[in-house]
């Protein structure tokens, strides 16, 4: 049975890869609004140097952040905001409908990733995490945490299940449970002690705040239990604040 697990996981991942049903089409779009503004570079601060008229067909070349590079029939190239591209139609006359990330996109997010800093058991700590939202309410997260204390520093790899009660809310609270491994390295200035590897389990709660565009503010508290080889398990509290993004 264990031999089947890895191929099974890979197969599952392959099935989950987002499939674009029209990957080889719709690289052309036609302006149906009064006009579309082309800028010299991808950004709101750059000047509009060309205005594509209604009926003009643009070739969509590439996208960087919220800007799409286009080329018209005369070979003029410029950057059009993705919201304007969304108002254009494809060869079959259908609206492209794309837009910059908004609250609806946030609620429909599949992936989330972020950076956090804070305090782990009265030491400086930082972490990076990635999450996969598999239902409106549930997501699985993998996090790497490092903390730097006076007597030791630690590295921790954890996986968690996260449940949000009100997925539609702008301020959305969540609960989380998880577990993983922790490596503790005592400071070299102390008496020689061995690095230790221990299992950890955690439970916590937090709040996601949708800031707009592609950004989420995240606050959380987690309580960790480190299962050591010694007589007593170690317990630690962790506060974190972070900035996250989604797609």
């Amino acid at each position: 049975m264990p031999g089947f697990r890895i191929p099974l996981v890979l197969l599952t991942l392959a099935l989950l890869m987002p499939l674009s049903p029209r990957a080889d089409e719709s690289v052309r779009s036609t302006v149906v609004e009064a006009y579309a503004e082309m800028r010299t570079q991808p950004g709101r601060t750059y000047p509009v140097f060309y205005v594509a008229e209604r009926g003009e067909t643009l070739e969509l070349l590439k996208q960087r952040t919220d800007w799409v590079k286009v080329r018209n029939y005369r070979g003029i190239e410029g950057w059009v905001h993705v919201d304007e591209i969304g108002q254009m139609v494809d060869a079959s006359g259908e609206l492209l409908g794309v837009h910059s990330p908004n609250r609806e996109a946030y609620h429909n997010r599949r992936w989330e990733a972020g950076l956090m800093i804070g305090d782990f058991d009265s030491t400086d700590a930082l972490s990076a995490y990635g999450a996969w939202q598999f239902t409106r309410n549930l997501s699985v997260e993998a996090a790497y945490t490092e903390n730097f204390g006076e007597f030791s520093d630690g590295k921790m790899l954890t996986a968690s299940l996260v449940h949000q009660m009100f997925p539609q809310a702008r301020y959305s609270p969540f609960f989380t449970v998880g577990g993983g491994m922790r490596q503790t390295n005592p400071r070299s200035t102390l008496v020689e002690t061995e690095d230790r590897n221990d299992a950890v389990a955690n439970v916590g709660a937090g709040l996601r705040v949708y800031l707009g565009s592609r950004f989420i503010l995240r606050l959380q508290y987690k309580h960790y239990v480190t299962m050591t080889d010694r007589d007593d398990d170690e317990e630690a509290g962790e506060w974190k604040i972070g900035i996250s993004t989604f797609f």
Partner: peptide, 20 residues
């Protein structure tokens, strides 16, 4: 496949290379 509601959930233009 062609219902607008499923299309509009795409954040980037389908078939367009995103370079971020």
């Amino acid at each position: 496949v062609y219902t607008p509601s499923t299309e509009r959930r795409e954040i980037h233009t389908p078939g367009i290379d995103t370079e971020n």
